[in-house]
Design a protein around this nucleic acid. Sequence first.
DNA 1: GCTATTTGTTAGACGCAGTCCAAATATCAC
DNA 2: GTGATATTTGGACTGCGTCTAACAAATAGC
Lengths: 202, 202
Amino acid sequence: MLQEAAFELFLEQGYDRTTVDHIATRAGVSRATFFNYFGAKSDVFWVDVDDALDALADAFGQLPASAGSDPIAIASNALVSIAAEFGAARVPWVLTQYDAIGGAGELQASAMSRLSRFAGLLERFIERQGDRSASRPPVDRAAPPHSASFPIPRAAAYSLAGAVVAAAREWADAGTGRGGLQQYVHAAVGPLAAAFAASGSR
Amino acid sequence: MLQEAAFELFLEQGYDRTTVDHIATRAGVSRATFFNYFGAKSDVFWVDVDDALDALADAFGQLPASAGSDPIAIASNALVSIAAEFGAARVPWVLTQYDAIGGAGELQASAMSRLSRFAGLLERFIERQGDRSASRPPVDRAAPPHSASFPIPRAAAYSLAGAVVAAAREWADAGTGRGGLQQYVHAAVGPLAAAFAASGSR
DNA sequence: GCTATTTGTTAGACGCAGTCCAAATATCAC
DNA sequence: GTGATATTTGGACTGCGTCTAACAAATAGC
């Protein structure tokens, strides 16, 4: 309802010219109430994505630690699985409308906290899964890296996160014949899972 | 000088309690002058990184298009090469001090524009290099992706960008025995170059 | 049903980043 | 030194986000 009011107004008059007061008035509440529901004006963009990140955190929390399995492949599969819930009709509104409404700077500024959370979830998951694998040495952070000792979880996590962002952008840009997000995520993360698996076994 | 003033004050009283007025006064100029040099308060964090991105854009602009060469490997090499300019003593100040000064939210909010620029440079470079390769079909954005037709430049660009971010974080976290950034970047992007090369040849 | 407590909304004050503009000052070329 | 140009300045302003006390609505207990 607040989100709907915001989206209507953004389309009518652009993001920058829409104030929080406008949104609150359109929704029939006070401005202070807006801030009870959203931490910032730009948070209205991210409801679906934040929900998906919650779902991902839940999914990771429920996967048992599997000694010997490839954590990056497991993480990739979880990503593809979450992506399955985003059919063609469920593109986050802002991804298809941001050109029309302006506000790309704000969108960008607010995206990083989501990306950072996402990468953090991936990293911690990969680390946790990887901790059960007896073949991995402790990470030595005080020394310059050699290829064999670079902490794979962080590089893998950030790369996967980047690939998923690329997939989401392709999906959003694809127009009405886009199908679901899953195929895009699968295609984008596929090469990475293989690469880090090959790298981690050295 | 404005940047130095800002960093002193951030250390003395934290990012949030340091206003632009404080910074300007410390530097002996007016507040309006601060905004002649920086678009936003948080831009003081990013001078070195912005310079590095400029250098990367220059490097990409000077590399000739090479038909048949692997653009991702070339891009990776360019990244490693730029990273060579960041010796142990040249860690961007904010990467080592952000815990001490607060302001992590602002740092994050301002990071995305840099990351987005970075990924865009990579993507356009890879596309431009790849355009000379007769073996690549035109990208069909209206159809759902299959592995063979997924637009590799974007996925590769975003993944590489992510990997570099991971490398930079490792580097910053590594403490005083860190050495230069180059080794970290090399280790992080290595698996990716191989992955997308293998994926692109299918 | 009545009272007390808890929860949610509101109006308004405030600080501050960022925008904008006209006036003041500094710099440059001749 | 003069005139043109460039830069800085002070100040007004908007809007986001924070905070608080007052008020309203919902809930719990008797």
